[in-house]
Amino acid sequence: MIEVNHDCTCQGNPLVPQVCRITDIRNETGDVKTFRVQSLDGKRPFLPMPGQLGMWSMLGVGEAMFSITAFGEDWIESSIKAVGELTEAMHELSVGDFVGLRGPYGNGFPVDALKGRDILFIGGGIGAAPVRSLIRWCAVHREQYGRFDIVCGARTIDDVPFREDFFENWPKMDNTGVHITVDRKTDNWNGSVAFIPDYVETLGLTPENRKVVMCGPSIMIRLTTERLAKLGFARGDIITSMETRMKCGIGKCGRCNIGSKYVCLDGPVFTLTELDELPAE
């Protein structure tokens, strides 16, 4: 039997969204937009933990689950890449429009287990979105954590999301290194051109007292893990967030299972050791 200890706060019924108003939309890259929303009475729709999920509802089109990439006193935001019918419809929305939102779902990152540790954050492409929620949390509680190394990889420099954070806010944090790398060089970039697995190996990071939090395409996770293993990192110290199709968010609809675990309920955050114990679907 598995205890579920997180709370879903949407009006008592975890399957019914609340209406929210879009208060800000930012273009992150050519195909990623960040949507900021608040409830109709001007409040934060719910209080998420870093790495938790929100089910966004485009009324009349459908619902899809996205990681909550940041929240403030009276807002929540998610960064959404246009890849299908629903997300393309969302990209047509304007400030002032309404969406439905329910959540938070999932376990979130282990913010307590990370205390006192150095952390290597790795975000590949839109995988930077869930990682951002954790970096923001750790920045607020900066004294509780050790050194930060933040790696962002993208196809080109124009595909790097959260530019204000990567180029302005995070480099100013104490004891923090921000490392940007791109797959393809363009005229407006003089920095590193390398895939994340190759790049991470060159940073000279050792596994002692260090945890890795890594999100991105599965091929990136697999190859980077191989390189990290060469450097001596244990699979139990590498944390990632899974994404898969979801409908309910509370482990009922059946869709997101891996063996007896549900990504929406027991995840989306797992250590690689935890994933090793699940069937290789």
Partner: peptide
Amino acid sequence: CYCFDINQADAGGEGVAFRCWDSC
């Protein structure tokens, strides 16, 4: 078998969200 899908039936400006049986 209890798997379900959640969807919306839209009638232009209003509609209803429903769930229905699904199959893995």
